[in-house]
């Protein structure tokens, strides 16, 4: 466990908590893509099946359970408790465009052709594109609440820190996981445009709105 990895995990957790607190306090999930949140719940579910079979550490187990809980509570708030505030009209990204290639790729390119390994690979590929419905929604409405941009910033920061973690592990432990690294790079690239807007607008006190 290195400093990039722990900061990455903290940043990931912070992103999910920011989103939950935003929805809870405002009693509204306006501007949030329910589809992205469903995809994240699916990512955690398919990746953390090893909770039942493989013990790694207390930290690992606790974080996995917390991530799963956060993801499912978020989905419940969007589609259950506060569904009247959910902007389904603008959450119109077609999930099959992501799911079909991701499922196909996880069958083609994996470490071993076993159900758990394919599900793990599926979760890695899916995570790299899961934010797209959210980014699509922002580009469609042309704006995002500032709190939503903080959520996206920490989610992107988590990915960038994981890249640093992998570089560190490559040099110190001779470790690399090519599926995770390639997907992680792809995922981080999706955030670059957003990072630019976040730094040039939101951090200067302006609302994120697209021309």
């Amino acid at each position: 466990m290195n400093v990039f990895r722990i900061l990455g995990d903290v940043s990931h957790l912070l992103a999910m908590v920011i989103l939950l607190v935003k929805i809870w306090r405002s009693k509204s999930c306006a501007g949030i893509s329910g589809k992205s949140q469903i995809l994240f719940a699916l990512v955690f579910t398919s990746r953390y099946l090893d909770l039942l079979t493989n013990f790694i550490s207390i930290y690992n187990t606790v974080m996995k359970v917390v991530f799963l809980l956060c993801a499912y509570v978020t989905v419940y708030l969007i589609y259950g408790k506060f569904r009247k505030t959910f902007d389904s009209e603008n959450d119109s990204f077609r999930l099959e465009f992501l799911l079909v290639p991701v499922i196909g790729l996880s069958f083609l390119e994996n470490y071993s052709f076993t159900p758990t390994e394919i599900l793990w690979t599926f979760s890695i590929y899916l995570e790299s594109v899961a934010i797209l419905p959210q980014l699509f929604m922002i580009s469609k409405t042309g704006e995002a609440e500032t709190i939503t941009t903080h959520y996206l910033f920490f989610l992107g920061l988590y990915r960038a820190l994981y890249l640093a973690n992998w570089i560190w592990r490559y040099h110190t432990e001779n470790f690399y996981d090519q599926i995770a690294v390639v997907s992680g790079v792809v995922q981080t690239i999706f955030y670059c445009d957003f990072f630019y807007l976040y730094i040039t607008k939101v951090l200067k006190g302006k609302k994120l709105s697209l021309p």
């Binding site: 790694i56 550490s57 793990w120 973690n165 490559y170 470790f175 690399y176 090519q178």
Partner: peptide, 10 residues
Amino acid sequence: PAPASGKDEL
């Protein structure tokens, strides 16, 4: 190094 699956990561 040989690739390894990062199952200890979240």
